[in-house]
Design a protein around this nucleic acid. Structure first.
Lengths: 190, 190
DNA sequence: GCTCAGTTGCACACCGGTGTGCAACGTACG
DNA sequence: CGTACGTTGCACACCGGTGTGCAACTGAGC
């Protein structure tokens, strides 16, 4: 089957997210296939990880674009983004995990456009007074972003509770008052 | 010299913090010593990492105990803790980094008392109404704690700006209003 | 029934890191 | 001066993961 390749990529995303040092053997058996078969689809482990990372980044970039298309305030855009992102947050866990170690440089480069968009949203929010100025926009966006993954690693990961928690927490980091953060997390409208 | 052992531990802390997969050779040369010498002080890489982790954890535990000894409010205790922790935050980077991968279990166990104390502080704060209830105390403390290290990884790491940013951000996560957070970050008094 | 693509199950060479053994060296301390 | 300890610079065996080669098998489509 040609969807073997797809299955390998999907499984590798999970496996590497949990255990970034997993070898080709581990990935292969998780995909219900033999190590040799993986090499039939990807010339090297590096190449597998590369395509994996590209796929994950393009998915998050798409979600971000959708959320950013709205003409809502920066806080609503952020909340919308986190809500959309949540169902596939495990697909990015691998990016966060892989960002340290061998592939760090490469993934950082792939993520650069996303980082920039995030920073611009935060910057706009700061300009409008809905976000705080306790940190420069680029760093602030990174910290808020990272918190989402921290929460994804907790017990809350499953269910909608996680999405709500991630949204509220990241908004708090951005300097949004608690009441407003909760309102944004609950109702998609203003 | 017998302080060779100390130097190895110190250097390993930095090296592994930056690059958790560093080998004995890398650590050795960073310590200005030959690989064989490291094995003269530590029977195995595992043992090196173990003593390293114990040392780092006991340092942070000491700082936490100091901060927690005060009878201030939970928010002031937290701010005090982060301020004290900041100068040696790089010594824990290694713990955070190592928490994923091979030594995860072990480090998690070492950190358990710290985690518990942190959670109890947050719980007290929630009871007093100074911290929010958007997350259960144990998870909330972990997220706030993790944010400190996220900030430590940014450009702000050096200087007092980082300490201030880390304190404010973690307090925001805990649900402290921005004005109060800034006040706590600036003045040690109420 | 034949073909062909994908898969399997070995075999192998290679590499890098680990941990050990041992002889030689230097030097601080008696 | 001599000795004793820490360090050095090899040597080596071992292990686990990578990537390749090749023959055999399977199964779906012609």
């Amino acid at each position: 089957m040609n969807d073997t390749r797809e299955r390998i990529l999907d499984v590798a995303l999970d496996v590497l997210g949990q255990h970034p040092d997993a070898g080709m053997g581990e990935i292969a058996s998780a995909a219900g296939v033999v190590r040799r078969t993986v090499y039939g689809h990807f010339p090297s482990r590096t190449e597998l990880v590369r395509t994996l990372a590209q796929r994950a980044v393009s998915e998050v970039a798409a979600v971000l674009t959708e959320a950013n298309a709205s003409d809502e305030g920066a806080d609503a855009v952020w909340a919308d983004f986190i809500a959309r992102l949540w169902p596939l947050v495990h697909r990015h866990r691998v990016l966060v995990v892989l960002r340290r170690g061998e592939y760090g440089e490469e993934i950082h480069a792939l993520l650069a456009p996303v980082d920039r968009t995030l920073a611009s949203i935060v910057e706009r929010g700061q300009g409008d007074g809905v976000f705080g100025r306790h940190l420069p926009a680029d760093i602030l966006s990174q910290v808020a972003w990272a918190a989402v993954f921290t929460i994804a690693d907790t017990d809350l990961a499953a269910g909608t509770a996680g999405a709500r928690a991630a949204t509220i927490t990241s908004l708090l980091i951005l300097g949004v008052p608690e009441a407003r953060a909760k309102a944004l997390a609950d109702g998609p409208g203003t």
